[in-house]
Design a binder for these strands. Structure first.
Lengths: 155, 155
DNA sequence: ATGCTTCCCATGGTATCCCATATATATCCA
DNA sequence: TGGATATATATGGGATACCATGGGAAGCAT
C-alpha cells in the first residue's frame, strides 16, 4: 500500500525539473507506470498528485455515471481535464508544466507534503502558513480520524 | 485501458488540420482503426470524441433503451447521426470538417480536453469558462467519485 | 484542367535522455 | 572509535529525439 509521508524541499531548475523525494519514489517503485499524476487542488493554491494506478481507479468509478450526464461531465472536466501524467526521468525527476508552475506560484523551491495515498506540492512559504492553519483547525475543532469503514465523512 | 488526460492547445491550420495531442495518440495506438470519432456535444457548444472501439460501448448502452422509444430515437440521432469517423495522417493529424468547425466556432486554436474514455474539443476561450463552471459545480454540489462498486443510476 | 484531399518531408522549438558533479548517508576496516 | 571508502540522492548541463506545424507534391473527383 502506498503511503506518502513527511515533507521535502526540492529545487526546481530552470528547465522546470524537480526531483521526486526518494521516499516517494520508493512508494512508486512497484507501479507499472513510473511517474505521477498531478492536478490543481480544488481548495488550495497547490498541486496534488498520486500514482497512476489510482487515476485508473478513479476512471473506473466514473464509468458508472451516465455517459452524458451533467455530473459525469463536471467531474471528468475538473479531474481529468486538469490532470497531467508526468513520467520520471532516469534520475527520478519530473518536469512541471508551465501552467501548473504558474497556478501554484512556484519560484525555485517546491515543498512535497506526504498525505497518505496522495501528496501535495506547495511553495515553502505558503505551506508554512498552511500547516499552522491546519494545526489550529485540528485543535479548535477537535478533529479526529474516524474508526472503521471510513469514507471521508464530510462531503 | 484508454484514459485521455490533461488539456492541450493545438493550432488549426488553414487546411483545417489539427494535431491530436501525442499523449492521446498513445492511448489510441492499440486501436485497430487509427483515428477518432467526433460528434457534436448535446449539452455544450463543443465537440466530443473517442476511439472507434468505444463507439461499440455506446451502442451497447443505447440498447438498454426501448428500441422505439423517443429517448432511444433522440440519442441515436444526436450521436450516431452527427458522428464522423476521422483518420489520422502520418503525422497524427486529423482534418476537421467545416460544419463541425462552424458548430464549435473554432478560430485558429483548438483545446483538447481529456475526460477519461472520451475527450472534448473547445475553443480556448469557451473552455476557460467551462472549467470554472465545472469546478464550481463539483464544489457546490459536493460531487465526489463514488467509492466502491457504484450503480450510477440508469443501467 | 480546377478544386479538394491525402501523403510526404522540412523546420523550429521543446522535452527527454544521458552523463557529470556535489553533498549527504551508510559501510567497512584498521 | 576514527577515518576512509562506497552508496544514494539531488542538481546541473549538453546532446538527442520527438512533436507540432507549415508547405509542397501527388492522387481523385468533378
Amino acid at each position: 500500500m502506498t503511503l506518502f509521508l513527511s515533507t521535502h524541499h526540492n529545487k526546481i531548475d530552470k528547465k522546470g525539473r524537480v526531483s521526486i523525494p526518494a521516499s516517494f519514489r520508493g512508494e512508486l517503485s512497484e507501479e507499472s507506470f513510473q511517474g505521477v499524476v498531478l492536478f490543481r487542488s480544488n481548495i488550495h493554491q497547490c498541486l496534488e498528485g498520486f500514482a497512476w494506478s489510482y487515476m485508473q481507479e478513479i476512471g473506473k468509478r466514473l464509468d458508472d455515471f451516465d455517459l452524458f450526464s451533467a455530473e459525469q461531465d463536471d467531474l471528468a472536466t475538473s479531474i481529468f481535464g486538469t490532470a497531467v501524467q508526468l513520467s520520471m526521468d532516469g534520475d527520478g525527476r519530473i518536469v512541471l508544466p508551465k501552467d501548473l508552475i504558474e497556478f501554484a506560484q512556484f519560484d525555485e523551491k517546491a515543498t512535497f507534503v506526504g498525505m497518505g495515498k496522495k501528496f501535495q506540492i506547495w511553495t515553502p512559504e505558503s505551506f508554512e502558513s498552511r500547516r499552522d492553519v491546519a494545526r489550529q483547525a485540528v485543535q479548535s475543532k477537535g478533529l479526529t480520524i474516524p474508526k472503521g469503514a471510513h469514507d471521508g465523512g464530510r462531503k
